[in-house]
Design a protein around this nucleic acid. Sequence first.
DNA 1: TCCTTATTGATAAATTTTACTATTAGCAAT
DNA 2: ATTGCTAATAGTAAAATTTATCAATAAGGA
Lengths: 131, 131
Amino acid sequence: MLKERTTKQKMLILSTVCASKAHPTAEQVYDMLKNEMPGLSLGTVYRNLNRMAELGQIRRLSVTNSPDRFDGDLRPHHHICCSACGDFSDYFNVSDESAIDAQISIQTGFEIQRHETVFYGICPKCRACKQ
Amino acid sequence: MLKERTTKQKMLILSTVCASKAHPTAEQVYDMLKNEMPGLSLGTVYRNLNRMAELGQIRRLSVTNSPDRFDGDLRPHHHICCSACGDFSDYFNVSDESAIDAQISIQTGFEIQRHETVFYGICPKCRACKQ
DNA sequence: TCCTTATTGATAAATTTTACTATTAGCAAT
DNA sequence: ATTGCTAATAGTAAAATTTATCAATAAGGA
């Protein structure tokens, strides 16, 4: 009767994403794990990250000029990306995000599942480097 | 002394994106133009859309499960994407978006240039199709 | 332990985007 | 108009990212 099986690969991938604060790409997750599990396949990483995002276990982030990133932190928060160096940070201090979803649902008829916000700018370090 | 040249290709690409409310991908812009300008190259479309986005003439939208989209409407607004059919709509009713950028800039030291928000959900039409 | 089948590893292929280069064409100066 | 400089283009190849395919493996219920 059980459909979803627990595998060593799934457990490692999920724990890696949840332990990281770097919002890794699929390839970065793969790189972090291939020492610990030499036979691991990149396709397995992609397949599982996608499924976990669909199941709501992790968040999938689509970012300009970057492969998709994954975030194991499910608390409501935003992200800030430096256009110069690619630094990708969290921004908390978020107030009442679910209210926005509810408001938009009422106004548009969409059943809103989630939303993602990315701020783009220049990080303090790159600002210091002038130009 | 002039660097940026005005070409027929640039004018057509920009006017196409600005005239469309469909948030077209690069390939869709190319398809819309290849009748009018048979020799047009897809690479030219990509190159110019990227440059125009960098110059702030248009917005570049990174969306999960979709190639990047482009938006000629520079007024502050959000976007809603249907996870089922891919429908991609505008959402206006946005209050005080620049204040958020300013607040985050103060708190993080980033020089915020812009932000993009995409809401994901199920559109009214797909909700009606049950399941 | 056996059986069913979800999952994996390996690879190929699809998709999306960028890079390269000879040629074309915008435009400033003649 | 004509010339000269070079940004921009068309055409193509290639890079980068992601998904599909499939035989072999292994999870877990009977």
